[in-house]
Design a protein around this nucleic acid. Structure first.
Lengths: 245, 245
DNA sequence: GACTTTTAAATGTCAGACAAATAAAAAATG
DNA sequence: CATTTTTTATTTGTCTGACATTTAAAAGTC
């Protein structure tokens, strides 16, 4: 592991990149201990604070974990699906909020991906996934629910649907798309009537998944997509009318 | 922005989290300048190196960028799709390599997501996307190509297909799934015959996309999925036979 | 007015020190 | 001898203070 002394980039960034490369390329394996900060400082010919900044960069990406004390140090971390989930969700959320991604674009992506999972979920979902979906439908029927809580339950419902596919890679990919949509969905005011319509569609989806009917699930998801879009159009139209007056 | 003095976690981690929350919740907006390191140190009642470690954590996630010199400092960074791509690819790659995700699981996820894009791509692809796909097919036909180069071209072909959907959110999500598969695909030895079969399927996909025929594209993708799985089964069987002898 | 120089502010880096945690090794105890 | 306690060495976490480097604005010069 070497760094280029001629490079203009931060030393800590270069060191972090060198170690990251070693991990990605498999030269450093999971749970392997990195040299101590003092040794790394020696090796790279920099000071310890600089090494520490590099290690913090890696820790921020869950690539390493550190342990204090004798025989402590920095260890290559096994990137868990859970760690990846949360990173994915943050990144997706910021991506949408900072880049003026339209509601339509985000919505299209989300439902396109979700429809990719539906057939697999219809085939493989466990009773547990189904129970979660049903429970969320019950929650969504409660009259006193705030819009935020309704959205949160919506996310939970869809995550159960996706998880039902029994493919952690799909769940990981979808977690970002589904959760990142939540802030956008929160823009929508759910009237009693629109909630009713959504719950009806959720019920159709759950029924189809329970019956193992991929086609029906897909059709219901398609309708839900279209209905979500019209809801958003209504909100936009209402806002436009208000702003004009 | 405050930190909990009773918490046992690293100060730099706490500070990073506090700033991250402020960004995610929109209290700090894009291109806004953070206080200088000295001011942050004052504010959080810690030393400058600790603040710096926190800032490096954020920089590693592309949440901030730093600029030296007078009127420099740390600025909230607009998370670009490009930044997000590369993060997503690293994360996905490590996730697959570190968690013993089976070839089948990864392959299923990849093609399920890709099939979600195909109908949109058939509808919207530009001549540019189509040209890229055709060019990669030509490359894949070259006899001298190494397996690695063939895989790389395969990835480029599929990225063009996905990008053809014209939905950056989909492209972002898929980038990880497609690219992270590459190391796994590299396990496969592509014989002349298997390359021919794959190129034929690629051609069918490109034709379908050109014709705007979503159904045909989906069918070809489904066949490609199945064929990829059999290729991998052959490799596994060959290895098993070799190991036994 | 256009160009050059100065200057102040900020990050980047370093050196050295101490605190705190931790597990192994050593010592004490029954 | 077995168990418990104490010691000790190692390593990360944090602080202080300093200097180097970069950069853009301000001041000076022609």
């Amino acid at each position: 592991m070497k760094i280029d002394p001629k490079s203009s980039a931060d030393l800590s960034a270069q060191i972090a990149q060198a170690i990251k490369d070693a991990i990605v390329e498999g030269r450093l394996i999971v749970d392997e201990r990195l040299p101590s900060e003092a040794e790394l400082a020696d090796q790279f010919q920099v000071s310890r604070p600089t090494v520490r900044e590099a290690l913090k960069r890696l820790a921020a990406q869950s690539l390493i974990r550190t342990q204090r004390g004798a025989f402590g140090g920095a260890f290559v971390n096994r990137l868990s699906f859970e760690d990846a989930y949360s990173q994915q969700i943050t990144t997706s959320t910021l991506l949408l909020s900072m880049n003026a991604v339209s509601f339509d674009t985000a919505c299209e992506a989300r439902f396109a991906l979700e429809r990719a999972c539906a057939p697999l979920s219809a085939e493989r979902r466990t009773p547990d996934h189904l129970a979660t979906m049903r429970a969320e439908i019950v929650r969504q029927n409660q009259p006193g629910l705030t819009d935020e809580a309704f959205c949160a339950s919506d996310v939970a419902f869809h995550r159960a649907l996706v998880d039902g596919a029994g493919n952690p890679v799909l769940s990981y990919q979808l977690a970002g798309a589904v959760e990142a949509m939540q802030p956008l969905m929160n823009m929508i005011t759910f009237t009693a009537r629109s909630r009713e319509a959504i719950v009806a569609l959720h019920t159709r989806i759950a029924d189809a998944i329970e019956a193992g009917d991929a086609t029906a699930a897909d059709a219901a998801l398609a309708e839900l997509t279209a209905y979500t879009m019209t809801l958003k159009d209504d909100v936009m139209a209402a806002r436009a009318a208000r702003d004009k007056s």
